[in-house]
Simulated scan of single mutants.
Amino acid sequence: MAHHDPGSADPLSLRGVVPPTVTAFHEDESVDYETTAEHARFVVDGGVHGVFPLGTNGEFALLTGDERRGVVEAVVDEIDGDVPVIAGVGAPSTHETIAHAEHAESVGADGIVVVTPYYYPVDHRAAVDHYRRVADAVDLPVYIYHIPSKTGNALSLETLADLAAIENVVGCKDSSKDVPWLAQAVDAHPDLTFLAGSDSLVFASLEIGCSGVVSAVANVFPELVVDLYEAYDDGDEERARDLQSLVFDVRDAFKTGGAYMSGVKTALRLRGFDAGPLRSPLRLKDEESTEELRERLEELDVLRPA
């Protein structure tokens, strides 16, 4: 089994299961900060090792700056040091990213997750300058968030090497699903903490040396993904493989009737945790897809009440 300790450069020693927690909304799509905080508490009670508000599942790109700041404050206040809170602060501009980063530090976040700038193309120099300026603005650990399918900006291994040399860049959350890229990145930078960003790769990512996973399935079924991680950590490879198979099935169920993101909040409702709608143009599953999702989750025997 692969060695998968967090990177020596990472003061938070991030490992295990870190869900990208949801942003809850009222029916009018205004942010429900109280329920947002309650969801972070729900996954922590389920055994997760950290929380990541304002990732893709947190619908960060659909929120205003004030709303994003409110979400970070609500989650930090609720979790209050029980596990690390790494807050998403990325934005298309360096200027706005720094403002979010400074705010996250001021309210007590433990680290920041900085998605590569999106919409406009970013070359090597732009990426290095961006991360350097953000890292220089705060004293917090900085985790690079690599998700080229959403940002349009992939990082080369050469660019990652220059980013790794920035003093408080301590890790990378990789959602490229490019396993050779990730394996080479882990190999080249043993001092960094690597978190895989796909539930399809929990087992595989631990095998290639990641210390943990950012798991959307863990937003709904934290116990399941924690069990998988702990089975692997205990050296019980057979159980870990069986649980990864179950995670594959849950992940497929979330895709019933379209968008994966809608699966998370719809499945949460089926567990009795109502985080409200998604913000338009995203939406919850329709009645037919919800019923199909319920049937599939019941067949998998994961749908115990929250």
Score class of each variant (00 low, 15 high):
residue 165 A to L: 08
residue 181 W to D: 02
residue 106 S to H: 14
residue 168 N to Q: 10
residue 226 V to R: 06
residue 136 D to Q: 11
residue 183 A to W: 04
residue 122 V to T: 14
residue 160 L to Q: 03
residue 170 V to K: 09
residue 192 L to P: 09
residue 140 L to K: 03
residue 175 S to C: 05
residue 117 P to Y: 07
residue 200 S to I: 00
residue 189 H to I: 01
residue 141 P to R: 09
residue 202 V to N: 15
residue 192 L to H: 06
residue 166 I to K: 12
residue 189 H to R: 08
residue 146 H to Y: 12
residue 187 D to P: 00
residue 213 V to N: 14
residue 165 A to F: 01
residue 215 S to T: 08
residue 137 A to S: 14
residue 161 A to V: 00
residue 114 V to G: 10
residue 141 P to Y: 02
residue 159 T to Q: 01
residue 196 A to T: 07
residue 207 E to T: 12
residue 134 V to H: 07
residue 150 K to E: 13
residue 243 L to C: 14
residue 215 S to L: 07
residue 196 A to K: 04
residue 129 D to A: 13
residue 226 V to Y: 09
residue 177 K to T: 10
residue 131 Y to L: 06
residue 233 D to C: 07
residue 156 S to G: 12
residue 158 E to A: 14
residue 238 E to T: 15
residue 141 P to Q: 10
residue 197 G to T: 05
residue 227 D to M: 13
residue 233 D to G: 10
residue 173 K to I: 03
residue 114 V to K: 10
residue 203 F to W: 01
residue 228 L to P: 10
residue 157 L to V: 01
residue 230 E to Y: 04
residue 230 E to T: 10
residue 114 V to H: 01
residue 169 V to A: 06
residue 241 R to M: 15
residue 129 D to T: 15
residue 136 D to K: 09
residue 131 Y to M: 01
residue 238 E to F: 15
residue 218 A to W: 01
residue 188 A to L: 13
residue 128 V to H: 05
residue 208 I to V: 03
residue 111 G to I: 12
residue 130 H to F: 11
residue 174 D to Y: 01
residue 125 R to L: 13
residue 172 C to T: 08
residue 155 L to Q: 04
residue 208 I to G: 10
